[in-house]
Design a binder for these strands. Structure first.
Length: 415
DNA sequence: AGTCCACAGGAAGGGCAGGCGA
DNA sequence: TCGCCTGCCCTTCCTGTGGACT
């Protein structure tokens, strides 16, 4: 969008729109509305006390404690689905460890790195460079060989007890392989690694030597239940909002989030978006309908964004799933009809022909269907129909309303 | 009990685009 | 700028599989 110079509109438009914009800005400046501090509802905000993770905090602390007495802690592998508190729990223990080390003058350093950070820690070079910078040494963006970076890093580490926490370690390994981990775990220095991931199968694909060394200790974070989510939300309400929030609203949000996967990130997001709805409506408290709106909005955004970002082929596959489901439902209940991969592929071929798209092989389409499963749009399971073969049954996780929206979106893409 | 269906999904490799070092 | 490397998408080939049918 061009933002230079003065743009000119019709005079009437100008006065009306300008007035609106002024009002919005003025209202915003006057107060942060219902919010006192929005950051409190961010999933990365680390609270003073982490609720319902006492056992995990204790476990991680006692695993890392040996560093304070000059021993090398075991490597730890932390696993849990999204929003189970893996990161904030680990980070807060690392913070405490650093504090304790400083207070007792121990040469212990705990470093946290998110491996998904683009341009910071997504290649071997950048990751090493980032680690070296943590020790206050300058490293050029590019130019050094990886070997000399390793040398620099091991020099920096020498004599210290270093704990490196690699969050989303699966993303790292997918990108640069596991030699990096191998090199670190094999080092002579007192170097411990905490790997955090929500992808358990990732662990199985590692080099066996890395696996045995990284998996010295394993900690699994279970999803929160509704009661725990409620506690977590309640603990943040006071700091986040300048308004009171009814307990029944919190319960509702907790229940919704627990239904899904016990995901605290989602619970917090629901609370924040509900409040934003209330605020935009000019209401002074959150009501149930705000929560309903928020839940629908979040679902909608998540799914439509996921679909919009897909390549044409994937969109065609999704359109095929919908088309088969529609014809199978045949005016009956959309919700209960199930779809078979065979039919989807046949429909996909037809759609490709119609829109002039080169059709992919069944093998590939099978993988594309699998990808939609990771978005949570569909769920599949392998069924056998005896003499009539073995195939995947596809269950679509969208209500009628969402379905119409997605179909509209696909239609806009020409499918 | 054995056969056979029709796809799931692993393995290997081709082709292409984009990134990177020289 | 060029050539090499790497990652990604996709195909081909292949083995495995649960249960209806014979």
């Amino acid at each position: 969008m061009e933002m230079t110079g003065t743009l000119s509109y019709g005079a009437a438009y100008e006065t009306k729109v300008e007035q609106q914009i002024k009002t919005i800005f003025a209202n915003y400046i006057k107060s942060d509305g219902l919010f006192k501090d929005r950051n409190v509802l961010s999933s990365t905000w680390v609270p003073n006390r982490i609720l319902h993770r006492d056992a995990e905090v204790l476990q991680i602390s006692s695993l890392l404690a040996p560093a304070l007495r000059g021993y090398k802690p075991n490597n730890v592998f932390v696993y849990g689905t999204v929003g189970t508190g893996k990161t904030i729990t680990t980070v807060s223990v690392l913070n405490e460890l650093n504090k304790a080390a400083k207070a007792n003058k121990r040469d212990v350093k705990a470093i946290y790195l998110n491996c998904k950070m683009k341009r910071v820690s997504d290649t071997e070079y950048r990751l090493l460079a980032q680690l070296i910078r943590e020790f206050g040494e300058a490293v050029p963006e590019t130019g050094l060989s990886t070997a000399s970076l390793y040398q620099k890093f091991f020099d920096a580490v020498k004599g210290k007890h270093v704990i490196i926490c690699l969050d989303e370690i699966d993303a790292l390994v997918n990108k640069i392989g596991d030699t990096f981990l191998y090199n670190l775990t094999r080092s002579e220095q007192s170097l411990s690694i905490i790997g955090i991931t929500n992808n358990l199968s990732f662990f199985d694909n590692l080099d066996t030597r890395v696996k045995s060394s990284l998996g010295e200790e394993e900690i699994i974070f279970k999803p929160y239940n509704a009661v725990q989510l409620k506690d977590i939300l309640m603990s943040r309400v006071g700091q986040a909002f300048s308004m009171p929030v009814d307990e029944s609203i919190i319960s509702k949000i907790a229940a919704l989030a627990a239904q899904e996967h016990g995901d605290a990130r989602r619970a917090l997001e629901l609370l924040r978006v509900s409040a934003e709805f209330a605020e935009r409506n000019g209401d002074s408290v959150i009501t149930e309908s705000h929560v309903d709106f928020a839940a629908e909005r979040i679902d909608h955004d998540r799914i439509t964004e996921a679909i919009k970002g897909q390549p044409k082929q994937s969109q065609a596959v999704l359109a095929s799933i919908f088309a088969v489901k529609d014809s199978a439902a045949n005016g009956g209940s959309w919700k209960d009809t199930r779809v078979l991969s065979t039919d989807v592929y046949a429909m996909y071929r037809k759609i490709c022909e119609r829109v002039g798209l080169k059709s992919l092989t069944q093998r590939r389409v099978s993988d594309l269907i699998g990808e939609f499963e990771t978005f949570g749009v569909i769920e599949t399971r392998v069924i056998s129909r005896g003499r009539y073969g073995r195939m995947r049954e596809i269950i679509v996780h969208l209500n009628e309303q969402m379905k119409l929206k997605v179909q509209k979106l696909l239609a806009e893409e020409g499918l």
